[in-house]
C-alpha cells in the first residue's frame, strides 16, 4: 500500500507546487504508516526526479510515453489509475490546478474512490478520513468525510508548507500499456505564457480594478509586478471592458488564487471579487474611497489616488 502523488512537470522541470504535493503526501503517509510513490509522466531527467525524494517520495514511477503529451484526459486518467492499482494506493494526491481538476474526478471513478477537491489542510482524522476544503467560493470551509476505501484529493495551492527530508527514491519505469485508441486529443497549437509570472504560481499578485480608469494605465502596475516578480491580475469589470485579458480575472467567476501577498489597486472589493482572493495571506488595498469594502478584507490599506501611490511604492521597492 502507498500514497500516490501525481507530479506534473513543465518542460521536464518540477515546480514548488510539485514539492508541496510530495510534502503533503509524505505527511499523510507518515500518519498512515505508508510510503509515497510519485508518478511522473513525460521526459524528466533522473536528477530532477530525485528531487522528489528530498520531500519524501521513496519511489518514483516514470512514464515516458510521448503520446501523453496531448494531456488526453481519458488516457492519462487510465494510466494514473493503473499506477494507483499497481502501487495499491490508498490515497491519490493531485494539485488543484487545471490538470489536477481535469484528471482527479475521472481517476476517482476508475478507482471507485471518494474525491475531495481543493483540500486546504492535512486530514483532521484518518479513520474516518476527514479533510477540510473551501466551500461557497472561499466564504466558508467544510470538513468532508470520504466513505470509500480509496481517497482522491486535490490540494489547493499554498496550503501546505514544503518539508524537506534527506531521502532517496528508487526510480522505476512504468509502462501504462496505453492503447492508441485511448488518445483522442490532438493539440493543434500551444500558447505558453512566457516571460511572465503565472497567476496560479505567483507568490505575489498585483491586481487592478476599475479605479485604473483605462486599459492604458497599466504601466505602473506592470513595473511594480516586474520588480516584485509578481503575477498580474484584474477585477471582473476590467476584463469585461477588455482592458486586460480574461485570463487575468480573479474572483468568484474567474480565477481563485491564494498568494502570499495580494495588491488590490483601485478595486472596490465586491463580494464576488473577494471570493477569489480571500485566501491570500496578506491583502493590501489602495483605493480612493475610504468606504470601499476591500478595506474590510485588507490587512494593509492606503486611502488615496492610485496614480499618486504607485510611483512611491515603485521607488520604495527599488530602494529595498
Amino acid at each position: 500500500m502507498s500514497i500516490l502523488v501525481y507530479t506534473e512537470n513543465w518542460d521536464g522541470k518540477f515546480k514548488k507546487l510539485s514539492f508541496e504535493l510530495v510534502s503533503y503526501a509524505a505527511a499523510i503517509a507518515k500518519e498512515m504508516d505508508s510510503s509515497v510513490t510519485a508518478l511522473s509522466v513525460g521526459e524528466v531527467a533522473d536528477d530532477e526526479l530525485n528531487k522528489l525524494a528530498n520531500y519524501g517520495a521513496s519511489k518514483v514511477l516514470k512514464l515516458e510515453d510521448n503520446r501523453f503529451g496531448s494531456l488526453d484526459n481519458k488516457a492519462l486518467s487510465k494510466a494514473i489509475a493503473a499506477a494507483a492499482n499497481k502501487e495499491g494506493a490508498k490515497v491519490v494526491v493531485f494539485a488543484h490546478d487545471n490538470l489536477g481538476k481535469a484528471l482527479a474526478p475521472r481517476v476517482s471513478v476508475k478507482l471507485d474512490a471518494g474525491l475531495v477537491s481543493g483540500a486546504t489542510a492535512l486530514p483532521s482524522s484518518f479513520d474516518p478520513f476527514v479533510i477540510k476544503k473551501k466551500v461557497f467560493t472561499g466564504k466558508a470551509f467544510a470538513n468532508v468525510q470520504i466513505n470509500a476505501d480509496i481517497k482522491v484529493v486535490t490540494l489547493s495551492q499554498n496550503s501546505f508548507e514544503l518539508a524537506e527530508t534527506a531521502g532517496t527514491a528508487t526510480i522505476e519505469a512504468f509502462d501504462a500499456a496505453a492503447d492508441d485508441a485511448d488518445f483522442n486529443t490532438v493539440v493543434n497549437e500551444t500558447n505558453k505564457i512566457t516571460g511572465k509570472v503565472l497567476l496560479n504560481d505567483a507568490e505575489i499578485v498585483v491586481s487592478g480594478g476599475r479605479g485604473m480608469k483605462s486599459g492604458d494605465n497599466w504601466g505602473g502596475l506592470e513595473e511594480l509586478a516586474d520588480l516584485l516578480g509578481a503575477g498580474m491580475a484584474c477585477s471582473r469589470p476590467v476584463s469585461d471592458e477588455g482592458w486586460r485579458s480574461h485570463t487575468e480575472h480573479v474572483g468568484q467567476t474567474g480565477k481563485i488564487i491564494a498568494p502570499n501577498l495580494y495588491f488590490a489597486f483601485g478595486i472596490s472589493g465586491a463580494i464576488q471579487h473577494l471570493g477569489g482572493v480571500s485566501s491570500s495571506k496578506v491583502i493590501v488595498a489602495i483605493n480612493k474611497d475610504p468606504e470601499a469594502p476591500i478595506f474590510e478584507a485588507a490587512d494593509y490599506g492606503i486611502v488615496g489616488d492610485v496614480f499618486k501611490v504607485l510611483p512611491q511604492l515603485i521607488d520604495a521597492v527599488k530602494a529595498m
Binding site: 484526459n73 481519458k74 486518467s77 488543484h96 474526478p105 474525491l115
Partner: peptide, 23 residues
C-alpha cells in the same frame, strides 16, 4: 459556486466513457 467540487463533469465523462476536456 456552492460546494466547489470541480468533479461532476469529469466523473460523468468517466462513467460514460466519453472524452473530456477541462478548463
Amino acid at each position: 459556486s456552492d460546494y466547489n467540487g470541480n468533479a461532476v463533469g469529469g466523473m460523468l465523462a468517466e462513467m460514460l466513457d466519453f472524452n473530456s476536456v477541462s478548463a
